[in-house]
């Protein structure tokens, strides 16, 4: 069964001459328990797809469905948010600076009508690899990696089946990135989660996802398996260019063949 479906999704901002088409005719599906990656450069529309799904982009057409239930407009039900959660790029901006970890998690649990808050919070903190000593800290007392763990705990709190990951590690150091990526892999296994992940880093998406859609200027130019990507079997020239660039810097002398 497919957990997420996108069919001919268009998303735009503004109207008249100022209209910007951020996503044009995106079609793909993510099976239950799968991990799907969206890659592309900034402005390619990859984050906009996630934002449209959760109702943060108002103007869209086409079809989006979660567990075969289509979503409409930009208002989502409580049940939707219980099932679909999101982790944002910048852990410095996505946590309330005046709320302790405990307050952040307790509020989420209360919103979704989950009881036994005490034990749940302790369990959530253990799940994301933070001990109970972090419970009453404020965000400024946490490192970037620890903040992202709190953001992940918050996303896990309502026991969703889908987590949308918008560049979850691009603000982190590589050693911390490794810890957070390992955590995400473990959580997916433990909770049978479905991931839809956005990243500009092909190596990160290659590590996390089984299927990958490559986006350019609002369109999906290619959907490929991670195996094909590793073997550089890209059909579209833009994908080849991205893969080439991900291998690192090639100087001019090499272009000239000197």
């Amino acid at each position: 069964m497919s957990r997420l479906e996108f069919e001919g999704l268009n998303v735009w901002f503004g109207d008249g001459p100022d209209r910007v088409d951020a996503v044009k005719g995106a079609t793909f599906e993510v099976p239950s328990g799968a991990s799907f990656g969206l890659v592309g450069e900034s402005g390619s529309g990859k984050s906009t797809i996630l934002r449209a799904l959760v109702g943060l982009a108002r103007h869209w057409s086409g079809r989006m469905a979660v567990a075969e239930a289509p979503v409409t407009g930009f208002k989502r039900s409580k049940a939707f948010y219980k099932d679909v959660q999101m982790v944002f790029q910048d852990p410095y901006a996505s946590l309330h600076p005046r709320q302790t970890v405990d307050a952040v998690l307790a509020e989420t649990l209360k919103l979704h009508g989950i009881g036994d808050v005490e034990n749940r919070i302790e369990q959530l903190l253990l799940d994301v690899g933070l001990g109970p000593k972090f419970r009453f800290r404020y965000p400024h007392q946490l490192s970037g990696g620890q903040r992202q763990r709190v953001a992940i705990a918050r996303a896990l709190a309502p026991e969703p089946s889908v987590i949308l990951l918008d560049e979850p590690t691009s603000a982190l150091d590589v050693s911390v990135q490794a810890e957070v990526l390992n955590l995400l892999v473990d959580l997916r296994k433990a909770h049978q989660l479905t991931y839809l992940m956005v990243s500009h880093d092909l190596a990160v998406v290659g590590h996390m996802c089984e299927r990958i859609a490559v986006m350019q200027a609002g369109e999906i130019v290619e959907i490929m398996s991670v195996e094909d990507m590793r073997e550089m079997k890209a059909a579209h020239p833009y994908t080849r260019q991205l893969l080439q660039a991900s291998l690192g810097y090639v100087g001019e002398e090499m272009h000239g063949g000197a």
Binding site: L181, A203, M229
Partner: peptide, 20 residues
């Protein structure tokens, strides 16, 4: 070495990334 090994790599897939 720890930094180098903690990077995910397209050409050398691993189940888990090494943690520094």
């Amino acid at each position: 070495r720890g930094l180098l090994n903690s990077l995910p790599r397209l050409d050398a897939p691993r189940e888990r990334l090494e943690v520094l």
